[in-house]
């Protein structure tokens, strides 16, 4: 099942997903917090937005990113027939 071109195509798509995941990660880990001063001008559910993103918002974004990644990567594995065979 696992011929060479299939494996290469699978890895190309996997690397593509990694780039998307890391782009979101970079945004919520760094980019956002460079603008904390200006974001604090905006009010979000009663909080200054810049502070809230550092204290709570980014953490939530990370949780969502990983669930998204786990789901997408599994779809890729199945698409190329390279997922594990479920034992149960």
């Amino acid at each position: 099942m696992s011929n060479k071109t299939n494996i290469e195509a699978h890895w190309k798509k996997t690397s593509g997903l990694l780039k998307i995941v890391l782009a979101f990660w970079f945004f919520f880990a760094y980019v956002l917090h460079f603008f904390v001063g200006s974001l604090n001008e905006i009010s979000f559910i009663g909080f200054p937005l810049g502070y809230y993103m550092a204290a709570q918002g980014s953490l939530f974004a990370f949780v969502v990113i990983i669930y998204f990644f786990a789901k997408k990567q599994n779809q890729i594995d199945e698409e190329f027939g390279l997922a594990e065979i479920d034992e149960e």
Binding site: L17, L18, V21, L22, W25, F28, A29, H33, V36, Y51, A54, A55, S58, L59, F62, V63, I65, I66, F69, A70, Q73
Partner: peptide
């Protein structure tokens, strides 16, 4: 104060790297 919210971001965001780069 705000400077240490870096602990919150660093200690949770690291899991994105664990999931996508290494663990599987």
């Amino acid at each position: 104060g705000y400077g240490y919210t870096a602990l919150l971001i660093g200690w949770t965001g690291g899991y994105v790297l664990v999931a996508s780069l290494l663990a599987p």
